[in-house]
């Protein structure tokens, strides 16, 4: 299986802080890679580099054969179309219907601005409804998005990302705002979809247990450096927890 995401000695500097420090990482197609680490360890920054929402200060990022150092404008948008993104705070427009929120996932393939469900082509609406059905929310299609619970809103956000027909799905702490039951549902959904569509998933998490049970591979970050990179199977809970301790040294090898 070929690699779809390749980071080579990537550093990112925000003023005086070094958010990423010479990160090298390759993710093969179809893998679920989980990023673990404290707040501020660089997990979100790393994910945002995959989608070109942020640009590396040094090193190279290559995603689906596109070099993100040079891509801009139409080429960058073309890449983003192939990469779905799910956020901790869902990022839905509360005042719009659930279905219209999902439809915004198709904007990359449509021309011109859209506002109002009727401005989206019928095939887009049909496909969007299909994805809502997939995440179990077809019945709520015409409710306002802000009338849904947190877990439901996150599933809508996943349906929105699926409408892009992505080859890679990025999830930035997708369950950090959810209760344990909804968190399990959302992670299970990601796992199923990944298996169904051979979708590569990069997901940052706070909970070691979730990482071990839902991920194929666990990558630990501390202060912008990769301090752990192992297959989830056979990785002990204590070894994974060590990512969170400031003093413990974890061998940075796979």
């Amino acid at each position: 299986m070929h690699d779809v995401v390749t980071f080579q000695r990537v550093s990112k500097r925000f003023g005086a802080t070094l958010a990423l420090d010479e990160v090298s990482l390759s993710v093969p197609e179809g893998q679920i890679a989980v990023l673990l680490g404290l707040s501020g360890s660089g997990k979100s920054t790393l994910l945002r580099h995959v989608d070109g929402l942020q640009r590396a200060s040094a090193g190279s990022v290559s995603v689906l054969g596109t070099d993100l150092a040079t891509a801009s404008g139409a080429r960058l948008r073309a890449l983003r179309r192939r990469v779905g993104f799910v956020f901790q705070q869902f990022h839905l427009v509360g005042a719009l219907t659930v279905l219209e929120n999902v439809c915004t996932g198709a904007l990359g393939t449509l021309r011109g601005p859209r506002l109002g469900l009727f401005t989206y082509p019928k095939r887009v609406r049909q496909e969007a409804l299909g994805h809502l059905d997939r995440v179990g929310l077809a019945e709520q299609a015409f409710q306002r998005a802000d009338t849904l619970s947190g877990g439901q809103q996150q599933r809508v956000a996943i349906a929105r990302a699926l409408l892009q027909r992505p080859e890679i799905l990025l999830a930035d702490e997708p369950v950090a705002s959810l209760d344990p039951e909804s968190a399990g549902q959302v992670m299970g959904l990601l796992r199923e979809i990944s298996a169904e569509q051979n979708l590569t998933v990069l997901c940052s998490l706070h909970q070691v247990d979730l990482a071990l049970s839902w991920g194929d591979r666990v990558v630990g970050l501390r202060s912008g450096r990769v301090v752990l990179d192992r297959q989830a199977a056979g990785l002990g809970r204590d070894e994974a927890m060590a990512v969170y301790s400031a003093v413990a040294r974890v061998p940075a090898a796979a």
Binding site: L53, R80, V83, F85, H91, T104, A106, R114, A161
Partner: peptide
């Protein structure tokens, strides 16, 4: 929502509208 729309590959006018 704006970041989410941009992450989906939307252009500037689409970002403003959606």
């Amino acid at each position: 929502p704006r970041t989410a729309v941009r992450a989906g590959g939307a252009g500037r006018s689409q970002e403003l509208a959606s």
